[in-house]
Amino acid sequence: MAAKKKKTANGRSKRAPQKAGKRAQKKDKTKKAILEAALALFAKKGFRRTTTKEISKNAGIAEGTLFNYFGSKEDLALYFIEQEIAGLISWYEDEPDIQEFPVVEKLFAIIQRYLERITPYEDFVGAVYLRALQPSSKLNPLSLDGQEVNLHYLKFIRSILSEAEAEGEIPPLGDLGAYGFGLFQLAILTHWLQDRSDHKEATLALLDRCLTVANTVIQRGGWEW
């Protein structure tokens, strides 16, 4: 998977022949169509009850072709996560006012936006989450495939934290800050998946409180034991 991805990345680069670029673009389009079809079905019928047959039918491709793109539901899930992260980052970059926010609010907005994006696919996300707990799964954050996606995201968070560090908004946290945030986001996701409150508002409150407290603790240089 890692090697495959590299090729795609090269294909997108400016030096590559146009034909290859077009082919990659088409491939990308099909992949997105499959994901879209799959997500719509997951949202409607649930993750387990959706068959590959239905997915290919809704994506307008032959069932066999589907397997050329995604060897398993795990590959599909990994692609989903990748797309979500890409979507989240480009949302962040295009959001007009967010650059002016204090860092705590930026981080809040990012997680909130992330949760809002995955809300229609809660069932799917829950299934992916459980699968990701298995060490052998590609989705496991510590697996090679999982790590690549994860690192891409952490780098994005790292850049936000670095900016805040440079401006003296928070003391230097280094890479640990981003790692810590990644774990925190996972904890929030865990809470969110189990949250039965109205509009999952308990998660929203927890998220806000945790960030506020974390900020206070970081500013103070520790918890007053």
Partner: peptide, 14 residues
């Protein structure tokens, strides 16, 4: 205050 993002989210969900 709730920061603007939180307030806006509350409003939109409701």
């Amino acid at each position: 205050p709730m920061h603007a993002t939180l307030a806006r989210t509350q409003f939109r969900t409701a």
